[in-house]
Amino acid sequence: MQQMIRDIAVILNATLMYTPPLLFAALGSCFSEKCGVVNIGIEGMMTIGAFVGAAAGYYTGNPWLSFLLAGVAGGLLALFHAFACITCRANQTISGTAINFLSSGVSVFVCRLLFSGNTETIPVSNKLPLFLSGLFSWCAEHLPAPLAGLFRPNGFLDNVFNTYASTYLAFLAVPIVWYVFYRTQFGLRLRAVGEYPRAADTLGIHVAGVRYICVILSGILAGLGGASLTLATVSAFRPSIVLGQGFIAMASVIFGRFRPQGAMLGCILFAFCSGLRVIVGSNTSISVNLISMIPYVATILCLVLFVGKSQIPAASGLPYEKSK
């Protein structure tokens, strides 16, 4: 029984650990997809965010500043994508792919410049805070006996929920993005631009402007996602650290039918299965290759069984030309 509780704690903790990078990136992907710009470059923007977060964290010692800088770096990279796709009307998939190559190259190049030739940064001394620690230790001291036991260090609650601030920020961002999409004028405009830009244009909406803002926002969020890997999950950058998580995030957006709350479920499902893999794969005789498949198979199964037809924004991937 105690073993089982411990295992559940590990799975839930792993879920909360895997989710934030995916979730930030997925919300970013929502922004650009919704406004009609396909952003394959999410992966690259995460990579640059991961690097800038780790490098700035080492040099400034301030995790929050570094976290913000990582968002700025992702946003700058997204500006390239926006310029290519919106102003120059380039093929969005190709531009995104180029961003992915560019960012892995640039981050390693700059890393070598800054860290005397290493492709790995020196670990940061201050990570994002575990901001529930204070609350938990207060509860453990001040609450009456049976309740206080719940909050003791290394207890169930502490092991599961006392995670880095980035986790809570990521979950907090979901209702905010939802509110922007469905309850604000800007959200209405960005959805209109993604569905039928000509109509939006006729009504006086600046299509290119809205798309620029959305793509840059997607880069900022992806950058934050990358930084939550290097400022919370671990404390240093390596070139292989993102490795496909941007694509998983994009998949979970499709899984969630391009809605932030759906994308969140997709990310949580994938993260939960990744945590499950750790428990199932420990001290077992099941083939590791089968176990490694768990998150992917589960995601595909859910996609096929429970999620209906995905509603892609109608103008997704199409450059908008005013004069045609």
């Binding site: 704690a9 650990m17 092991n159 890997l229 945590g275 750790v278 794969g281 420990s282 001290n283």
Partner: peptide, 25 residues
Amino acid sequence: IQAYNANNYADVAGGKSAALHMYAN
């Protein structure tokens, strides 16, 4: 001795949760 094969050389979160699992046990 607890053993875990991550079957992946680049999954930092996986390595971390595997180790947390071992430490919890």
